[in-house]
């Protein structure tokens, strides 16, 4: 079935499968593999996108129900030669190891900084408590984002 939405600033009209999640549509249908599939039940945040100004798990959005939505995935946040400040901060601060959780952290953190450019440590920790990282122990991510917040 056909669904129309705005994705990374571009109007799209796409064919979605029955029972297809927005995550699957992005990855398998639209060739945007930046959003990661790690749990498919909203318990890891690796697939986080911003939809209608809310950070949500794209695995829990029925693609057919995304009709009319305004969606930003990690691909819409920065590119190799023009990184988003959150992306640069994570690289500089040692917030990246295996990197599988990283796009989800990038989107969730960018969303946080949009509403609160100077979050304190506990605000960062709670706002990102839905994003699981298995490699870093969160230390590198925290230092990266504290730096970005000017702390």
């Amino acid at each position: 079935m056909e669904v129309r939405f705005r994705l990374n600033g571009e109007d799209r009209s796409v064919d979605v499968g029955p029972a297809q999640s927005l995550l699957s549509l992005l990855r398998d249908g639209l060739g945007l593999p930046g959003s990661k599939n790690a749990c498919e039940q909203g318990e890891c945040g690796s697939c986080t996108v911003v939809m209608d100004r809310q950070a949500v798990c794209s695995c829990l959005v029925l693609a057919a129900d995304a009709d009319g939505a305004d969606i930003t995935s990690v691909e819409g946040l920065g590119s190799d030669d023009a990184l988003h400040p959150v992306q640069q901060a994570l690289i500089d601060g040692g917030g990246v190891q295996c990197g599988f959780c990283t796009p989800g952290f990038v989107v969730a953190a960018a969303h946080l900084f949009e509403s609160n450019p100077t979050p304190d440590t506990d605000e960062i920790r709670e706002a990102l408590s839905g994003n699981i990282c298995r490699c870093t122990g969160y230390g590198g991510i925290l230092r990266s984002l504290e730096g970005l917040a000017g702390r």
Binding site: G42, E43, G45, T48, Q54, A55, V56, C57, L60, V61, A108, E126, A127, L128, S129, G130, N131
Partner: peptide, 9 residues
């Protein structure tokens, strides 16, 4: 309830 992402949805 869940995570911030879950609470948004």
């Amino acid at each position: 309830v869940g995570s911030p992402q879950i609470r948004a949805a």
